[in-house]
């Protein structure tokens, strides 16, 4: 079924564009900032902004998840991980940033060139919207009868997929348990330590010495 579509300006588009611009500014600020606490805060703001953006684009379930995960759990995790690792990143020599910048600019230009052929945003007849997504919307009231189509697709049509996702979350939790759980302390050994048998003889506390000239950034 062809749905008439006319691209163009509307107030929703204006909100959409301003949120996207804020997201972009947030991302660029994250590159420049070297205090990781600030970066973690910026990523929290970024998540909240993208949640607002998802609401504008009718993806309420995704917005809900992003607000709870991105602004809640993720920020706490990054902060606690940061507290255990480093608070501040070292200054990178400008010589080292030239090649990445060139690669990024070239790849970005190629991708922008590719968007000329992409279907317009909001086109109901684009390939992504016309076939299987449309079928889910049309058949879900009879097949499943749950008002929230997203829940219906998530748990019933794509139940097998979601089972895999749940297993991935479980496996990630298991991996964290193995890496940081009780017992991981005993297994750990510093690279600079001598063999475990002569552990007692090794002087304590001089371990980071070889890294001193490199790791001593401005604090």
């Amino acid at each position: 079924m062809e749905i008439p579509f006319e691209p163009g300006f509307s107030w929703t588009v204006l909100i959409d564009l301003s949120l996207l611009t804020l997201l972009m500014l947030c991302g660029l600020a994250m590159v420049r900032m070297r205090r990781l606490f600030g970066v973690a805060m910026l990523s929290g703001i970024y998540s909240l902004l993208s949640a607002a953006f998802f609401v504008v684009l009718d993806a309420v379930d995704v917005a809900f998840t992003e607000a709870a995960v991105g602004a809640g759990v993720s920020t706490v995790l990054v902060l606690s991980g940061m507290a255990l690792t480093s608070k501040r990143e070292q200054r990178v020599s400008s010589r080292r940033t030239i090649l990445p910048l060139a690669i990024v600019v070239i790849v970005g230009a190629a991708l922008v060139y590719a968007t000329i052929d992409m279907p317009a945003i909001g086109d109901p007849n684009s390939p992504a919207n016309a076939y299987v997504g449309q079928a889910y919307v049309e058949r879900s009231p009879e097949d499943i009868g749950v008002p929230n189509i997203v829940t219906g697709v998530l748990a019933s049509y794509r139940g097998y997929d979601t089972m895999g996702e749940t297993l991935v979350v479980f496996t990630a939790g298991l991996a964290c348990l193995l890496l940081l759980g009780s017992g991981s302390i005993r297994g750990g050994r510093k690279v600079t330590d001598p063999a475990p048998s002569e552990d007692e003889a090794s002087p304590v506390g001089e371990a980071p010495a070889p890294a001193r000239p490199l790791s001593d950034g401005p604090r």
Partner: peptide, 30 residues
């Protein structure tokens, strides 16, 4: 109605993403 399929894919990807980030951070801690 907007297309529900991308919503489903991304909804699960967000939660999986934070879980895998936690694994990465755990490796950083070690």
């Amino acid at each position: 109605y907007s297309n529900p399929l991308p919503h489903v894919l991304i909804l699960t990807a967000i939660v999986v993403g934070v879980a895998t980030t936690a694994v990465g951070l755990a490796i950083c801690v070690r």
